[in-house]
Computed example of a mutant assay.
Amino acid sequence: MMKVAVLYGGTSAERQVSLATGKGIIDALQERQHEVVDIDFQGSRSCIEKVANLDVDVVFIGLHGRLGEDGKVQAILDMIGIPYVGSGVFASALAMNKHRSKHFFAKEGIRTAKEHVVDRNTYDSDQFDTDLSFPIVVKPNQEGSTIGLTIAKDEETLKKGIAEALKYDKSALLEEFVSGHEVTVAVMGEKYQEQALPVVEIVPKNAYYDYESKYAPGGSEHYVPARISESLTKQLQEQAVSAHRALGCDGYSRVDFILPSEGGAPVILEVNTLPGMTPTSLYPDAARAVGLSYSDMVEKLLNMASHDGEANK
C-alpha cells in the first residue's frame, strides 16, 4: 500500500473533464487500499504550498490542459523530489504545443497536416490571409478536448474561429481538414520498453469528434480493436510508440490519428501525455482490451512511477 496524492480539477478549459478523471483515479486507488490525498489543484499560492509540503510516496496527476499537462506541476514535483505518474517537464510542455511537436513527428516520418500558425500579438483580421484551402480546422495551439475548435468552411467562419481559439491561447493553429475517421493508440511502459495497446476506432454521433462526442454518455462508439487491417494496425502502433519516444514521454500517453478517406498514410493529430480517464475515455477502453480493468491500469501506472522514483534516489 502507498500514500498517493491525486491532483485534479485545475483551472484550464478542461476542468470538468479533469474532475471526472480525478474521481475515477481516486476510486481505483481506494479500491486497491492505497491511502489517498486528493487535491483540487487550482494554481493558487495555497495549492502550490500544499503540493510543496506533500508527504507522499507518489503523485498521480489527473490534470488536463494548462497548469497540469504542460509541465508546470511536474516542475514543482521535480524540485521537491516526489515521483509522479506520467511524463516529465520537457515532454509535457512539448506535447502541449501542437505546432512544435509536429516537427518531431515529421522527423520520425509520420505524416502531419499542413498548417498555419496565428499569433495573437501580430494577428490582424483585416490583413489576414492563408494558403490553406477550405475547410480549415482552427484550434488553440495549446489546449485539448477540442476546446475552442472550429471547422471553418468560409472566410467569415475562419476569422470567427481564430478569434475563438485565441481566447484560450496566445496562438491559434490552422490545419488542412483531413476527411476520414479518427483512431487512437494508447502507449504504456517504462522508457524504451513501451508497447502500444490495441488501436481504438472512434465513431462519433455528431458530425465531428467534438467535446460532446468525447464526454457525453453515448456521444461516440469505440471499437476495440479498430476495424482495420493488420498491416495498418501495426503501422499505427509503431508510429504511436515512435511519437511517444520522439517527445520523450514517460509511462503512458495516447496518440491520436486520422485515417484519410482518400487513402494514404495516417495523419497524426497529437500526443496526449495525460489522457482522459473518465468512464467514457479511450485509454481505459484500450487497457480493458488487454485484460486490464480500470483499477489494474491505475495500479500498473502507479507502480511504474514508484519504481522510477526509487531508481532516481
Rank of each mutant, 00 (worst) to 15 (best):
S133Q: 15
K160E: 15
G43D: 02
T273L: 07
A113R: 14
Y209L: 12
S18R: 01
A13H: 03
H307I: 11
F105T: 08
N121P: 00
E310C: 00
G264A: 12
Q195E: 15
V89G: 07
A75H: 13
T21D: 00
Y215S: 06
S253Y: 04
T112W: 02
S281D: 09
V85W: 02
R15Q: 03
Q142N: 14
A5K: 13
F105W: 13
V178T: 14
D256Y: 01
G43V: 11
G264Y: 11
D126L: 13
V199S: 07
V178L: 12
I76A: 10
G86P: 05
Y192V: 04
K313W: 02
I80Q: 07
E14A: 07
G9S: 06
L19F: 02
F134K: 12
N303K: 14
D256K: 01
L63I: 06
G189H: 09
E238T: 12
N53Q: 12
L77C: 07
E108A: 14
A311E: 14
V271Y: 03
S101P: 02
T11Y: 01
S12H: 07
S229C: 01
C249H: 03
R245L: 05
E31T: 13
V73G: 12
K50L: 09
D169E: 12
S306I: 11
S12T: 07
S18D: 00
L301G: 06
S229M: 01
N97S: 06
F41E: 03
H222K: 14
V199Y: 06
E156T: 12
A207K: 14
G71T: 04
I268F: 08
L173F: 09
P140T: 10
M188A: 09
I80M: 11
K160W: 03
S261Q: 15
C47I: 00
R288E: 12
P260N: 08
G276N: 04
K139C: 10
A289G: 10
V185K: 05
V200H: 01
L7R: 12
V203G: 01
G86S: 09
L247T: 04
H181T: 09
Q235N: 13
F104E: 13
K170T: 15
L292Q: 07
A265R: 11
D285I: 00
D250W: 04
F105C: 06
V290G: 08
A93C: 10
G263L: 07
E31L: 15
S293Q: 11
A152I: 13
P279E: 05
D154V: 03
S44G: 11
A113V: 14
G9L: 04
E194D: 10
V73S: 12
I61C: 06
D78E: 15
I228V: 10
G291Y: 02
V118I: 13
I61L: 13
L301A: 09
R254H: 04
E156Q: 11
L63E: 05
S101R: 04
H34Y: 11
Y294E: 03
S231T: 14
V183L: 05
A246Q: 06
T130F: 04
F60Q: 06
K167E: 13
F257H: 03
K159W: 05
M2P: 00
C47D: 15
E155P: 01
Y252S: 11
R32I: 03
K114H: 13
G109Q: 03
N141H: 05
H103Y: 12
A305W: 03
L29Y: 02
M304E: 07
K170E: 15
L301D: 04
P284Q: 10
V56P: 05
K23P: 00
Y84N: 05
L19G: 03
S125K: 14
D57S: 09
